[in-house]
Design a protein around this nucleic acid. Sequence first.
DNA 1: CGTCACGTTGAGTAGATTCAATTGAGGTGG
DNA 2: CCACCTCAATTGAATCTACTCAACGTGACG
Lengths: 213, 213
Amino acid sequence: MYAQASAKIELPSYLPQNPAPFFEGPATPVSFFPAGAEIYAQGEKAGALYQVEFGAVRIYRLLADGRRQISAFHLAGETFGFESDATHHFFAEAINATGVRVFRAPSGTDMSRQLLPLALKGLTRAQEHLLVLGRQNAIERVAAFLVEMSERQGGLQQVELPMSRNDIGDYLGLTIETVSRVLTRLKEKGVIRLLSLRSIEILKRDTLLAMGE
Amino acid sequence: MYAQASAKIELPSYLPQNPAPFFEGPATPVSFFPAGAEIYAQGEKAGALYQVEFGAVRIYRLLADGRRQISAFHLAGETFGFESDATHHFFAEAINATGVRVFRAPSGTDMSRQLLPLALKGLTRAQEHLLVLGRQNAIERVAAFLVEMSERQGGLQQVELPMSRNDIGDYLGLTIETVSRVLTRLKEKGVIRLLSLRSIEILKRDTLLAMGE
DNA sequence: CGTCACGTTGAGTAGATTCAATTGAGGTGG
DNA sequence: CCACCTCAATTGAATCTACTCAACGTGACG
């Protein structure tokens, strides 16, 4: 739907037409985070930008009673950590062993040109996710998730899920049991195949796409 | 929670520290949209920016079968319409009689410095809304909504709701009936009072805040 | 080979939805 | 200015989807 016509993506006039490469300065070191390690916490002072080198990161928020909503997963190559003020509003954790390049803009540097496209991309993705959480049922949510992960990994048949069922549930606003049941149903319908716990194969892409609308 | 300490909001170093006024050029005309009028549609070519002069706007997406998710409301003073590429991914409609200032940046203009703070603000708001849709029950959602609307109107006791129950439902991922039932319950509990259909008074702000977490 | 965390499956429940009927508010025309 | 009309909102009853709680499997790892 609404397919991008050409290879070259057209941009609105208010965006820089020749986006600058993101990191130009001296090479910044890569920090390593083991599985489950906190990268930053809600309430902490923000300021740095983070680029995933390898592994995967979850961004989430907690309610007082422990309910958790994961607002985004970030895979290799993606940048996260920017905030609208000097405080982090979310938690960021490494899902698996993860390498992250931490970049701190020198005081006074204006990164707007580099950051705006990323912020807009994140905004679009968040808004699309709102539709999933607000108006789709369990099967549709899981289908949309599998399609999203597939597309972010190049649209291959085989999709790697770096995160646990628990993470998937907290991303989709479902319980771990419901996620499991839906995957079983999709498997029984012949839509997907479970290669291993964290690796699935998409057998009927069209069906999956139709489910996720 | 995580209160902003001083009047002057501290910003991360990667943001412009002295944000430029948004519109500097020659005064742009104000377009008028009657209630329900479309401002732009999904799939249309994007490019302009819109600032609400008076009235209110809803931003939404549709599923094939007509289910609708409103991702944001925009009130007087707010800016919307920016996209990550040249296509609108959402619909924008006037909720009531609404005046909108349409601004088209001349080709080649880089509005990053002005837009980034708005995009980041929108991103934060969308991500917070994800928590509401993903992990909160009906009462919590409505409470969070009322608190949000109150704060966006200056934190007064009396809150104007420019939108219908239908719009509220499609924003909160609930049916119109559920929204109505919850409002009745809040009324019975003495938390709010209905001055008219679209105007409520908050009697127990603390209770409401605690419900919305 | 045993342990432990993670995942799956099952039964019963709760909360929100659906469908239907009623009430109420706002706007229009006489 | 009032009566009427229409659409929006509220209320009620029955249903259904996803959740909760519990038991059971399974894969990874020492």
